[in-house]
Design a protein around this nucleic acid. Structure first.
Length: 482
RNA sequence: GGCCCCAUCGUCUAACGGUCAGGACUCAGGAUUUUCAUUCCUGCAAUAGGGGUUCGAUUCCCCUUGGGGUCACCA
């Protein structure tokens, strides 16, 4: 159980509690998890709650719950703690202030007293000129006296990075290899906001260093801010971690995966009855692929097969169709008892009395062969529990003279013994064809309608097996007497 | 628009510089089945364009085009 972890491999997933877990976030978490597991490293969970405006109470708990539900157990993080805690950024504020001060002392950062209005004006000007929006450096060279004086007068301020104007920053991303950015194009990023909280950039760098993170595995949207981060690492005299920027998850129209174009949170999918196994498997294949044609993996198998080297560079469209296919496959191929257990809350919520476990298992077994999600399984199961209702069209079929003869015959024969095996039912059907003189559609459609409420569906032996002889007879009688 | 990243079937992707460019999803057709579903089989479908380098480019280089990301006191 307690093989010592490799201290050279430490990765983290650092969501911010601003809502439910995004599927893109799940993919990032998964790749971090896989890389850590594969190399006997540590997978750390850190909550980045430095944005007080977007903070949503309860979101952190939801995040933790979802991560647990999909099985991505972390080695250090909230609740379980760890050697490098606390793992919630709002509890680490003094640390960020301390290092921001150190950056100022080293000439790598400065106080900025510019007002929101002035910044807004700058932004508008930049937009008009069609250039990148950048701080113009007004406060870059304030004298110590000026700074002291403004501070003394309690003028609102932020702390900005003092990015060098010359040269360029070159770094190597594990996925993208060499990336070079001209320093003159790197903005003097705010690292401490006027409310005293750090921005992502500072908090991230400080925590990654303090928590001894070896590989920063995150979405590609962060690639462009790496020079800012490197500037901080180097100014503070810290070792720069390896960067692994994952290709983005895309909407069908190829833009960054977002709401509006469908479900984006893991909770959405779980609520609809997608299985964690399918979700994990599907999402692992978005931006990563083994060298062979294999598509089905358990989490453990993913750990074995995973490699950063096989992460692709281009964005991947999140194709629900393929997820559907995969979820259906898991529904059909995982253990029946397991699926039944998973489906229980959904069935109960739908108001179905599933207390007869043997019947429930048969119902589930039937439904899982016909559904893509657990929610869909309900639609294939309700008729085994609820009273059937018939349309006029249905009634026409049921009330035909031949059909009545058919039902009468079957009621009588069925009543002759308690339990019928599926084979015996098959025999009975053949017997019926001879005795009543109906066959094919004439036989099966009305029969299925009476037992199941629909002309299409499971075959008759299965239907009777699920319902039980008694209920089958009752249903036949009910339509016969209607 | 500046900068950065990316580019194989509609989608996810495979292919030491030498393959009939492979697999999967979707779709179409067929087989099995009383029907539906499952399952199985078959088929449709791609190297963005142009230049190089090379005996030979999906693969290496350049340009073009296209797409995306980023440009916050959000992460």
């Amino acid at each position: 159980m307690s093989i010592p972890k490799n201290p050279d491999i430490r990765v983290r997933f650092a969501p911010s509690p601003t809502g439910y877990l995004h599927v893109g976030g799940l993919r990032t978490a998964l790749f971090n998890y896989l890389f850590a597991q594969k190399n006997n490293g540590s997978f750390i969970l850190r909550i980045e709650d430095t944005d007080r405006k977007r903070y949503i109470p309860g979101a952190q708990e939801d995040l933790l719950k979802t991560i647990k539900e999909v099985g991505l157990d972390y080695d250090e993080g909230p609740i379980i703690g760890g050697e490098y805690g606390p793992y919630i950024q709002s509890e680490r504020s003094d640390l960020y202030r301390k290092y921001a001060q150190e950056l100022i002392d080293k000439g790598a950062a400065y106080y900025c007293f510019c007002t929101e209005e002035r910044l807004e004006k700058l932004r508008n000007e930049a937009k008009e000129n069609n250039t990148a929006v950048m701080y113009d450096g007004k406060c870059r060279n304030l004298s110590l006296e000026e700074v002291q004086e403004k501070l003394a007068r309690n003028i609102p301020h932020v702390i900005r990075l003092k990015i060098p104007k010359e040269g360029s920053t070159v770094f190597y991303d594990v996925v993208r290899e060499r990336v070079e950015v001209d320093n003159a194009l790197v903005d003097d990023q705010v690292i401490i906001k006027s409310d005293g909280f750090p921005t992502y950039h500072l908090a991230n760098v400080v925590d990654d260093h303090l928590m001894k993170i070896s590989h920063v595995i995150r979405g590609e949207e962060w690639l462009i801010s790496v020079p800012k981060h490197i500037f901080m690492y180097e100014s503070l005299g810290w070792k720069v971690p390896k960067f692994v920027h994952l290709p983005l998850l895309l909407n069908p129209d190829k833009t960054k995966l977002s709401k509006r174009q469908g479900d984006v949170t893991v909770e959405d999918y779980l609520a609809k009855g997608y299985l964690p196994e399918a979700l994990i498997n599907f999402i692992a294949l978005l931006g990563w692929h083994s060298s062979d044609d294999r598509e089905f993996y358990t989490l453990e198998e993913l750990v074995k097969a995973f490699s950063l080297k096989r992460i692709s560079k281009s964005g991947a469209v999140f194709d629900v169709e393929k997820l559907n296919w995969m979820n259906g496959w898991y529904l059909r191929n995982l253990g029946l008892e397991y699926i039944a257990e998973k489906a229980k809350p959904y069935f109960e919520k739908a108001g179905l009395d599933i207390s007869d476990h043997k019947k429930y298992l048969r119902v589930v077994d039937n439904a899982r062969n016909r559904a893509v999600t657990i929610t869909e399984m309900i639609a294939h199961s309700e008729m085994f529990y609820k009273n059937l209702t018939f349309s006029d069209e249905d009634k026409d079929i049921i009330s035909k003279e031949n059909t009545k003869k058919l039902f009468s015959f079957l009621i009588e024969r069925l009543s002759s013994q308690e339990n019928w095996s599926e084979n015996e039912i098959k025999g009975l059907i053949n017997e019926t064809i001879g005795a009543v003189g109906v066959k094919g559609k004439e036989l099966y459609f009305p029969l299925r309608l009476a037992l199941f409420g629909e002309v299409h569906g499971p075959d008759i032996p299965t239907l009777i097996d699920i319902l039980g002889t008694k209920e089958a007879i009752a249903r036949l009688k009910s339509v016969l007497n209607a």
